[in-house]
Design a binder for these strands. Structure first.
Lengths: 335, 335
DNA sequence: CGACTTTATCGAACCGGTTCGATCATCATC
DNA sequence: GATGATGATCGAACCGGTTCGATAAAGTCG
């Protein structure tokens, strides 16, 4: 590998001039610049990113930290961020915490050790310690998906209250009154907002929520399955189930199938968030989806703005909240 | 941030001794070691990984390069690798080429610039140029998923011939003779092997393959959909369709649903490779799945062996080929 | 007890860049 | 023609570690 000193020797200039020639070509005379460039080309010189990062104290890498890179929701966001970053000569390092807060912390510390230029984080936790940790990160960053109270950082996400409300309203319109809700962990903002959307929409319509119809699915497949089972074995079954995320809703569908209930003939089903291959799942589930491409785009722009604009660090944290979209399926029937 | 010189000053030793104390504690006297350790603890010293990598010419990071990190197949492998690497104090950098060979090359070069200790690569291409490029990579590496002719590296994958043969045999046993095959790109080893498994099993059973029943689905959803449509509009329709991967098979299911055919009553369907949520897809597809955990485990062990064992570089490249597993569903009926 | 090894530690060079103040030639201004 | 501003280039220090040969002290052996 050719080093900057090799280039300097061939071009008969000092090392510092070569460095200058690449970082701010305008400050080198045209003749020298040309000599340096052809010398560099001759030996195939490429600056060592590691050495650059060490000297500058900052690299051109962006950290992307989520709980599950396999989740298509995060996948779409990642792709948008990668494309945008690449256009701006930055490089995205993807990491996966498997939803574990300890590992998330390790990953972030590791990334900071790598002197990343910025960080896109989908927070996996909450509470004072966690908030303190995130607040202590001095790298430019954007949080997304989960709004965490106390973290004063740019945030990009969807209107989860609206998501819950839209599907509830839809079911009410179809004549449903016995609507069940499989909730997520209430400490998560997405989960509590979706639940609030459900509750308040029911209240506005003057329909009482049967406490037996609200169960906790933890946003996971297994807990969602158990929660759905608890709903389905009740003597007075709900006529519709609203799943607070894709995992619990599909787990509910599976439970219904196993117990021999037909969807939507026996029970209607609606869910928040899409899954891959939803179009081949029978019935096609009525859902509300997030605009992942737009979310990713905003995250990318905002993060690169904070990275590249030197006085962006003075700008106050800002929230970007997008409206989700209703996607009708055939899993809800009129009653 | 405390540096090694701060520690040296406090412990009243030279910088080189501090370095030695951390890299090979045995070569420092117990008393000095203790002084250094407590000094380091006092100022919270942690070695800068960037500076270490620069000085050593090698980092403790492992590159993971695939075409789609959202694919659960790669996701399982990634998780295994991450866990194993973490146990051995290595850190996995995930990157996604979106299946584009140019980007894959950029990513790999970027990772090498970062002086990664090793590379796990799911090759995205083939041909002399590509082989030459991969062969030129001097970092310890393991290839997986796609066996590429000409690349002399460790390879970990599944027996794709067997995968195709198993499902074909299953359909033949059920009495099917008019079996269609939605193939993948034949330059990919997985695709051609699966196809060969189909063809040879048919031949062994003395059943002729109708040329109109073999269509190209490119392993993608859209091409698979078109291919399936071509099968379904024929006057003499196949009684069973075998999808060479999950995308084309599910696209075929969608096509069948849209044309009003029932699976398995009208047409049976089988596929290679699982998808998330396959258990809520109606009907449950009969399939052959790869042992992703085992694959990931072998990749991880092999790669870390090559990284940590100094004379592993002399060991010849080795292939690890695992048998896939048959998972019955209810998408194939006896005729 | 002298010769030889072993052990502990150190200084200096190095990895491959960046950055800042200094230097010197060139040019415009009065 | 002296004065000051401007532009191009350079040397040296620095980022934060590793590594190797040198050195001195301690231990081994005949």
């Amino acid at each position: 590998m050719a080093t900057i000193r090799d280039v300097a020797k061939i071009a008969e200039v000092s090392v510092s001039t070569v460095s200058l020639a690449f970082s701010s070509p305008g400050r080198v005379s045209p003749r020298t610049l040309e000599r340096i460039r052809s010398a560099a080309a001759a030996v195939g010189y490429v600056a060592d990113p590691l050495a650059q990062s060490l000297a500058r104290g900052r690299s051109r890498m962006i950290g992307f930290v989520v709980g599950n890179v396999g989740n298509p929701f995060f996948g779409d966001i990642r792709r948008e961020l990668e494309n945008y970053a690449l256009e701006h000569e930055h490089f995205v390092l993807i990491t996966d915490s498997s939803g574990k807060t300890d590992r998330e912390r390790d990953l972030i510390e590791h990334l900071i050790g790598l002197k990343i230029a910025g960080l896109a984080l989908a927070p996996s936790s909450f509470g004072p310690d966690y908030v303190k940790f995130v607040e202590s990160i001095k790298v430019p960053m954007v949080c997304f998906d989960q709004k965490v109270a106390g973290i004063e950082r740019d945030f990009v996400g969807s209107d989860n209250f609206l998501a819950g409300a839209m599907l509830t309203e839809h079911l009410l319109q179809l004549g449903h009154r016995r609507i069940a809700f499989i909730a997520g962990p209430q400490h998560m903002n997405t989960a509590s907002e979706r639940y609030r959307g459900f509750v308040e929409t029911m209240a506005s319509a003057g329909v009482e929520v049967n406490p037996n119809y609200v169960v906790d699915g933890q946003f996971t497949r297994s807990a969602g399955y158990e929660a759905a089972m608890r709903l389905l074995i009740q003597p007075e079954r709900p006529t519709a189930i609203l799943g607070a995320n894709n995992a619990v809703a599909l787990a509910a569908l599976q439970a219904m199938q196993e117990l021999g209930f037909s969807c939507p003939d026996d029970i209607s089903l609606a869910m928040i968030d899409n899954v891959q291959w939803s179009s081949v799942i029978t019935p096609r589930i009525t859902m509300v989806v997030q605009d992942t491409l737009q979310l990713g785009n905003i995250i990318a722009r905002r993060l690169l703005h904070r990275i590249t604009d030197p006085d962006a660090s003075n700008e106050p944290a800002q929230d970007f909240v997008l409206a989700p979209k209703f996607v009708p399926g055939n899993s809800c029937r009129r009653i």
